[in-house]
Amino acid sequence: MINPNSPVILSIENLTANVDDTQILNGLNLEIKAGEIHAIMGPNGSGKSTLSKVLAGHPAYTVTGGKVTYKGENLFDLEPQDRARSGVFLAFQYPLEIPGVSNLDFLRVAYNSRQKHLGLEELDVFDFDELVQAKLDIVKMNPAFLSRSVNEGFSGGEKKRNEILQMAILQPSLAILDETDSGLDIDALKIVANGVNQLSNKDNSMLVITHYQRLLDYIIPDFVHVMANGQILTSGGKELALELEAKGYDWVTEPQPVG
């Protein structure tokens, strides 16, 4: 929801970034306020996923210029774990499998590291189990998945649901969903989108990165940005996504013929 008086959660100014000495982000600007859902769309290689990884602090990406302010702080002053503890959450396009670590233990360690950082009470096994059980319904997850190893042997849809469950438990201020719709059938897509919608409120914000308009039928964005060559080319309301779907990315990425 758009409220002009909401505080700014994330402000990106003229951001440039490299991976393996190749510049991927070429001066990106974006401002996100509390309560807003922003969608970034763009063709493969436009830099969408790079943006999500730079914001979360992946070590393979190097910021070469620009400024990112998160809740008034320089985001790049924070280690990846401190970004997470202060409310930045990245839902991975390809969530990792961690054999040998139970999903429940993983969730509890993550939850408690955030609680500790915020000076809040850490939960023991029993209290945490209660908290998780209450969140499972958000993504309609079978409790059996809690005792399995993190993402090990999960289907694509189950992995994405697990990401949204983590989001439900960590209650981020800024959730970045990196191609959360990739590899999902329509039923799984609806469950995941429905989970995200339940978690969206006036105090947090979402940055939804996607290649396809389909996801945005279920997560309705307040703003749509089109990205190409590491920059945002154009921005608009939710109708921009439909226009893109109809006309293709060439419409914005290629020079218009004079006529």
Partner: peptide, 28 residues
């Protein structure tokens, strides 16, 4: 690195992430 980053992105520091992964390997 990607495993460690995944755990960092959930609020675990690097040392804790490594211990968790080493433990996961040994616990089997």
């Amino acid at each position: 690195d990607d495993e460690i980053f995944y755990l960092q992105s959930r609020g675990l520091d690097v040392e804790t992430a490594k211990i968790l992964l080493i433990n996961a390997f040994a616990v089997e």
